[in-house]
Amino acid sequence: MDEPVTAEVGEDGLLAAVRIDPRAMRLYSAELAGHVVEAVRAAQREHEQPPRDSPGLDVVLQRLDELEAQADKDFDYVNSRLDDSLRRYTE
């Protein structure tokens, strides 16, 4: 029997599913319980791992800095255009 019990954790980190191979029902209850605990813990550990293709924290922070700098430039541009418009209307 490969894996008598498998478990799956949902996106929310909570247990979503447990699958028990019918042949596992022949095990003693304590042995089956051990397999259930092992499967659930494996699913939880897998859920805790960041996706392999996700960027590292440094990359995310650098991108946030770039977005903040661009937002500052855009805000300055909009502000200057608004000031120009207000000057024209008040003259």
Rank of each mutant, 00 (worst) to 15 (best):
D74I: 00
D74Y: 01
L15Y: 02
Y77C: 01
E31K: 13
G10Q: 10
F75C: 02
Y77R: 13
L86Y: 14
P55N: 01
L82R: 11
R88D: 06
R87P: 01
A43R: 07
E11W: 10
G34H: 10
M25K: 07
V78Q: 11
R41W: 11
Q70P: 00
T90Y: 04
R88G: 03
R81F: 05
A30M: 10
Q62K: 07
L64W: 02
S85D: 07
R41K: 15
E48H: 10
A42C: 09
D74P: 00
A33Y: 13
E66D: 12
H35N: 14
P55A: 04
A30Y: 11
S29Q: 13
D12T: 06
Q70S: 02
M1G: 14
A24K: 11
R41C: 10
V37W: 10
V18P: 12
A7W: 00
V60Q: 08
G56C: 00
Q70F: 01
K73F: 09
L67R: 02
D53S: 06
H35E: 14
E66V: 03
A33L: 12
T90W: 03
L27M: 12
S80V: 10
A24S: 08
Q44P: 03
G34C: 06
A33E: 13
A69V: 08
P51H: 09
G56E: 06
Q49G: 00
V40N: 01
A17R: 07
H35L: 09
A71R: 10
L14E: 12
E48P: 06
S85F: 12
S80N: 14
E3W: 00
A7K: 00
L15D: 04
V59F: 05
D74Q: 03
A24Q: 11
E3V: 14
E3K: 14
A7T: 00
L27D: 02
L57P: 02
Q62W: 02
V36M: 13
L64E: 02
Q62P: 00
R26K: 12
P4Y: 14
L27N: 01
H47F: 13
D84H: 15
A69K: 08
R81P: 01
A43W: 03
S54E: 12
E46W: 02
L15H: 03
L32V: 06
D84S: 15
L67P: 00
V5N: 12
R45K: 13
A17Q: 05
G13E: 09
D21Y: 02
S80K: 15
E11V: 09
R19C: 13
L32Y: 09
L14A: 12
K73C: 06
K73Y: 09
L64V: 02
T90R: 10
Y28T: 09
E68W: 01
M1D: 05
V5C: 13
E66R: 08
R52W: 08
R23M: 01
P50L: 14
P51C: 08
D84E: 15
Y89D: 09
T6Y: 06
L32Q: 11
L57I: 03
G13I: 04
V9R: 05
D12R: 04
A24I: 07
V18I: 15
